[in-house]
């Protein structure tokens, strides 16, 4: 139990740092703004209580906001995917393999399932975030373009991070 808390606290800090110190500093043109930190929310164990998901996502969102001068925007988008996560799990995970406590990752459900899962969650998060960012700018076409372009890069980066972690669990 305590081991799990330490592990997820570590993953929280790791994803926050990857986001603000590495991904935020890569300039891929004004259209592509990937957000990798949401992998933290996606990878919390299946069956994590709803309130804990929401609090963790809120803290993560505020953390990223503090470093990106976007007060509340990341927090709002992260809360949305944290809230939808349990319902999505109920739809996407077959009942016979639904085991609380396991991580919803490549190692548990395979690559195809994981890609589907990440794409759906990233799409929701990015659409919400870029809509919120644009409310005061009036560029709807740009929002859609940004959401889709950034989504592809985010998904790729999250898969890349997963490949590293899968490799390390196998070695263990």
């Amino acid at each position: 139990m305590i081991k799990d808390i330490v592990k997820h606290a570590f993953s929280f800090i790791l994803f926050l740092l990857i986001q603000v110190l590495v991904v935020n500093q890569i300039h891929l043109g004004w259209v592509v703004n990937p957000y990798v930190y949401i992998a933290f929310i996606l990878l919390l164990p299946i069956g994590t209580p709803g309130w804990l998901l929401l609090i963790s996502a809120f803290a993560m969102g505020l953390g990223v906001d503090a470093f990106s001068n976007t007060p509340g925007m990341h927090a709002a988008a992260s809360l949305l995917i944290a809230f939808l996560r349990p319902s999505l799990h109920r739809v996407m995970i077959p009942h016979d393999t639904f085991q609380p406590g396991t991580q919803p990752d490549v190692a548990t459900f395979g690559l195809a399932w994981f890609i589907k899962y990440v794409v759906v969650m990233t799409m929701i998060h990015h659409t919400a975030f870029f809509l919120l960012e644009a409310l005061s700018v009036e560029h709807m076409g740009v929002v859609v373009l940004k959401a889709f372009a950034s989504m592809f890069v985010s998904v790729l980066l999250i898969l890349l991070v997963q490949l590293f972690t899968v490799g390390s669990t196998k070695r263990r």
């Binding site: 929401l54 609090i55 809120f58 969102g61 906001d65 007060p71 509340g72 925007m73 927090a75 709002a76 809360l79 949305l80 919120l132």
Partner: peptide, 9 residues
């Protein structure tokens, strides 16, 4: 929490 975030925004 969502309202809190939107207030911030």
């Amino acid at each position: 929490l969502e309202i809190l975030s939107l207030i911030l925004v």
